[in-house]
Computed example of a mutant assay.
Amino acid sequence: MTQDEYPALYQSADSSSADAQWTYLLLLRLQYGLLFLAAFISLWFGGTPDIYIFYVFVVGTSTALLIYTSVQKPEKDWYACRALAESIKTSTWRYMMRAEPFEDSPKISTVKSKFSRFLKEILDANSHVRDPISKKPSTGDQITKAMNATRALSLEDRINRYRTERIEEQRRWYVSKVKTNRRHFRGWVIFCVIVQGAAIGLAMLRIRYDQQWSLWPTEPLLVLASAVVGWIQIKKFNELASAYSLTAHEIGILLTRIDHVKTEEDFSLFVNDAERAFSREHTQWVARQTEENL
C-alpha cells in the first residue's frame, strides 16, 4: 500500500516522525561540526583578536544548539509520532483483513464506527503528540477507499495480499535494514580508525619536526574521532542490525504458517499474531530509545 492509502492520521504521524527525526539528527550534526570547527580554529590561536571572537561565536553557537536540543527534545516527538504511526498501521491491516476486533459484522457501518473509535482512542492515548501532528495536517480519509476495497476481497485474495504486501514487505524491509546498518557500522568504524591513526601519525612526526611545522591538527582529528564514536553510539548500527535480524527470522517463521490458514477465524488469529510481532519489535525500539535519553 502507498502512504496515501492509509488513514489521514497515519500520514500526519508518519510525516511528523520523519520531520522530528530529521531535525534531531541535523542538530546533532551541527553540534559535532561546530566543535570540530572550534578545534580547527584553535590552531591559529596567538594571531589576530578576530580569531578569538570567531572561536567564541562558534563555541557559543554549539552551546546554544545543545541547550535547544536538551529543552525541546525533538527526539521525543520522533519516537512518539513513530509509535503512533505504527499503532495506526497495524490497526489498519487488522481492519482490512477483517481480523479481531474488526471481524465481519452484519453492517459494515458498525465496523467502520469501531475503527473510528479505535483511532480516537489511540490519539487520546498519545495526546502529547497533538502539537507536532497538527503541523502536518492531512486532508485524506480516515478509512480510505483502498482499505475498504481490500476488506471486500475474498479470504484467499486477502491472504495473498497480506502475504505479499505486509509480511514479505516487512521481511524485505528488515533484511534491508540489517545490511544497511552493518555496512554503516563497518564504514564509520573504519573511518574512525583512519582518523585516530592519522592523529597518532602526526604525534609521531611531531617528535622530529615540531620546530619546522607551526600547525599540528592533532586536536581537530581527535574531536572528529570523538564525534564519530558519538554518532555510532547514537545510531546504534550494530544493535539495530542484530534486533532487525531476529525480527526478520521471526517473520520468516510466520510465513511458514500462512499456508495452513483455511478459515476466517484462523486468518484472524494469524493476522493478530503477525501484527503483535511487528508491534513488539517497534515497541522495544521505542523503549530503548526513550530509556537512553532520560
Rank of each mutant, 00 (worst) to 15 (best):
H260V: 04
T110W: 06
T61E: 08
R94S: 10
S105L: 03
W78K: 00
K136P: 05
E165W: 02
E100F: 13
W44H: 13
I207R: 11
R82T: 11
S16Q: 12
Y32A: 05
S12I: 07
E168L: 14
R257I: 00
S268Q: 03
P49T: 03
R171N: 15
T283P: 04
A18N: 10
I190W: 00
V261H: 07
T144W: 03
Y52D: 14
Q72V: 13
Y32Q: 08
Y79T: 06
C192K: 03
A198N: 09
M204H: 05
R206L: 08
N293E: 10
S242I: 13
L205R: 01
P7D: 05
E281N: 11
R276E: 09
K107S: 14
Q142S: 14
A227H: 00
E275N: 05
S279M: 11
A99I: 09
E100Y: 15
H260E: 06
E168P: 03
A18W: 07
M1G: 11
I251K: 03
T63C: 11
R172I: 14
R171W: 07
T180G: 06
R183H: 01
Y79F: 10
D210N: 15
F36T: 15
R288L: 03
D259V: 06
H249R: 15
R82E: 12
I122M: 08
Y79S: 07
T150K: 13
L65N: 08
Q284S: 07
F45H: 10
E291D: 12
D131A: 13
W213C: 09
